[in-house]
């Protein structure tokens, strides 16, 4: 559908060196440290990228899963981009999704910023590590790892979530932004039950451990990592799912930035690919948030789970091939 990756100027270390973009090109020209990969995005591909962004952004807003787990397979399998170009573009889309959604969540007081920053220490380190690893690991290996992650994501999306937190009485007014630092926890206004819900985050080491892995996956594979962080906070730390999802959404932007900075530095970001995708995601996330109340999250999650498992098989087979 798209693209012919080619190297216009060969600038790498002296000697027979393989291109660090993972495209398999070997060259021995002297000069700078990196080659310059060009991709061609025609009008049809441009429309396709915007539509992909719309789909991903709306799915992310409706079911809390989307971003990288949809974008990376689509960019590699449908558009034929190299997986590292796909991961870099996906990270841009993930950042845009995060700041679009969390801007609203923060205003509503659903994000526990103390919890977010405490977990973000581990996640950002993981994101940075994953970002470096992702630029060095061969594309085939990345495809297989991504496929395995998709299976996990698909299964998790088919499973339900736990409800935690204690109602502390109807406050009568919407109150946002209540947090405690010792113990780590807080309270939020639950619109569904029209009451304040108080909670305490428990088992912090579980959250930190899973957050590091989520960060690693984010930098390595170009995903947000919410699929790991939300269950960790909700099921592992007893944080109510609304707070877990909103806090994860805020964290994802910071984590993806850590990974993206490496891809940006190593020259994997193609603005012509990332820009239409990001604009689609932006529009899709806003539209998804608007219709979030009327859609059936369970049905959407089921459909998404089945699709992810099928895509996973294709990615693993391609990676091994």
């Amino acid at each position: 559908m798209v693209h012919a990756t080619r190297h216009r100027r060969l600038r790498d270390r002296i000697g027979d060196v393989q291109c660090r973009h993972g495209c398999g090109t070997r060259f021995g020209a002297a000069g700078g440290r990196f080659c310059e990969g060009f991709v061609t995005v025609g009008l049809l591909a441009l429309v396709g990228l915007i539509l992909l962004g719309l789909l991903s952004g709306s799915l992310g807003a409706l079911v809390g899963i989307g971003g990288g787990v949809v974008i990376v397979p689509a960019l590699t399998l449908l558009f034929g981009f190299d997986i590292k170009t796909a991961i870099a573009a996906s990270l841009v889309a993930v950042v845009v999704t995060s700041i679009t959604a969390s801007g609203r969540y923060v205003r509503l007081g659903l994000v526990n910023t103390r919890l977010a920053l405490t977990l973000e220490l581990a996640t950002a380190l993981g994101g940075l590590t994953g970002g470096f690893a992702g630029t060095l690991v061969p594309s085939g290996v990345l495809s297989v790892v991504f496929g395995v992650l998709l299976v996990v994501t698909g299964i998790l999306s088919l499973r339900g979530r736990g409800e935690h937190g204690e109602q502390v009485g109807a406050a009568g007014v919407e109150q946002a932004g209540w947090e405690t630092s010792r113990p780590l926890g807080g309270a939020f206004w639950d619109e569904r039950t029209r009451s304040m819900v108080s909670y305490t985050a428990r088992r912090l080491p579980i959250g930190e451990g899973v957050s590091f892995v989520a960060g690693l996956a984010s930098g390595l594979l170009g995903i947000g990592g919410g699929v790991l962080k939300v269950p960790a906070m909700n099921l592992g730390m007893d944080v109510p799912v609304k707070v877990a999802a909103a806090t994860s959404s805020f964290m994802i932007g910071v984590t993806a930035t850590a990974g993206l900075s490496v891809y940006l530095g190593r020259g994997f970001v193609h603005p012509g690919v990332a820009a239409p995708l990001a604009l689609g995601v932006l529009t899709g996330a806003l539209a998804g948030a608007r219709f979030a109340g009327s859609a059936s999250p369970r049905a959407l999650r089921t459909i998404l789970g089945v699709i992810l498992v099928l895509v996973a098989v294709v990615m693993v087979v391609r990676g091994l091939g």
Binding site: T40, L46, G265, G267, V269, G272, A278, L279
Partner: peptide, 23 residues
């Protein structure tokens, strides 16, 4: 978002379909 949109529209207007990887 505004900068992305302006850049995208300019790219379409100039027919520039080749995109380099930028740092």
């Amino acid at each position: 978002g505004a900068l992305l949109a302006i850049g995208l529209v300019m790219g379409i207007a100039t027919g520039d379909v080749s995109t380099p990887a930028l740092r």
